[in-house]
């Protein structure tokens, strides 16, 4: 029989396993990789995590609710390109200016969120109203979204966002750039929503057993539709942040981030079967992937190792999830 204190300790470790792994990995890299152990590198890791972390918020919520969204990467690129075209001064950018200049921050943010929310709403319509398969619907949006980016830009770049926006990537608070704080705050806000509000609890219930949730009086369709819109809006936010960091947008911006987001979500402990997961764990998963990427950037390793390691880590994460489940069963 396990004592309550020991059981609590084991639960704590299991619930935060990815954070412990992150700490160990960071410690190993700090010792083994030259120049790794410095505040600037840790700040870089957090900065580089910004976009995948923001993308992963919506993806996690949808997976927890029992769905998935493959369109988020293209939606992110679309939002970035729309912001780039409207506000960048070079390339295909038309360089809109606002008076006072700071208005560009809320205006571009609202536009990016709206672009994302619109695509999310379109996904929700097909999935919830027309009962189409979410995988197919969002795969289609992944394809047409990127196509729209190319069509809007003609394959060209929009570059040179004004300083009023760029300051978010340049100015720092506690060593981290402001765009990284946006992502951190968004993650914490949605972690709170998921854990402490009826919306979050209902989402977990829907993902666990949608039929039971429906019978318990939860408006499953409405909540699912809202979650798709949130996922789209979060992808729009990621696009806004990415455009600010790269000072504009290129037609292939963000390519490959969908798979990183999926990897982070799985590593972070979200069950692909739905009903289980925490956003702080997902954020730790993103940090873990970025810390490995940074180590590879600093070492002489070929970039292919990143993909090999990431793929291996996803497998290990799924394996750990199974081990965690069996340990929990024994505890019960």
């Amino acid at each position: 029989m396990v004592s309550p204190r020991r059981r609590a300790a084991i639960e704590l470790v299991l619930d935060n396993l990815v954070w412990f792994i992150l700490a160990v990995v960071l410690a190993i890299f700090s010792i083994a990789v030259p120049n790794y152990f410095q505040i600037g590198i840790f700040a870089n890791i957090v900065e580089q995590s910004t976009f995948v972390a923001t993308l992963s918020i919506g993806l996690s919520l949808l997976i927890i609710a029992g769905y998935m969204d493959l369109s988020i990467e293209s939606v992110m690129a679309l939002a970035a390109m729309v912001v780039g075209i409207l506000f960048a001064k070079s390339g295909v950018g038309i360089g809109l200016t606002l008076d006072p200049e700071w208005l560009i921050v809320p205006a571009s943010l609202v536009i990016a969120l709206a672009v994302g929310a619109l695509v999310g709403a379109s996904n929700a319509f097909f999935v919830v109203r027309l009962r189409m398969n979410a995988f197919i619907v969002t795969l289609a949006a992944y394809i047409w979204g990127r196509g729209l980016v190319v069509a809007l830009s003609g394959g060209r770049s929009a570059q040179e966002l004004p300083p009023a926006l760029r300051f978010l990537a340049i100015e720092r608070f506690l060593s981290f750039p402001l765009i990284a704080w946006v992502s951190i705050v968004a993650t914490l806000a949605f972690a709170f929503i998921l854990n402490k509000t009826p919306f979050g609890r209902h989402l977990l219930l829907i993902g666990g057993n949608a039929q039971a949730a429906y019978r318990a009086g939860i408006n499953v369709d409405r909540l699912t539709a809202i979650t798709f819109v949130i996922a789209g809006a979060m992808a729009g936010l990621a696009g806004w942040l990415l455009a600010i960091r790269t000072s504009g947008a290129t037609a292939n911006l963000g390519v490959g981030m969908l798979f990183q987001a999926f990897a982070a979500v799985v590593i972070g402990g979200v069950s692909l079967k739905g009903g289980v997961g925490s956003l702080t764990g997902v954020y730790a998963g993103v940090l873990l992937l970025a810390s490995i990427q940074t180590a590879i950037n600093l070492m002489g390793l070929p970039a292919h190792f990143t993909q090999l390691i990431q793929g291996g880590m996803v497998l290990v994460a799924v394996l750990l999830d199974t081990v965690k489940l069996s340990i929990r069963k024994k505890l019960i």
Binding site: N44, L253, G254, Q293
Partner: peptide, 14 residues
């Protein structure tokens, strides 16, 4: 990787 701009940005930053 994949000629993606933010990847290049991360390399330079690191």
């Amino acid at each position: 990787m994949q000629w993606e701009a933010s990847n290049a940005g991360s390399i330079v930053a690191d």
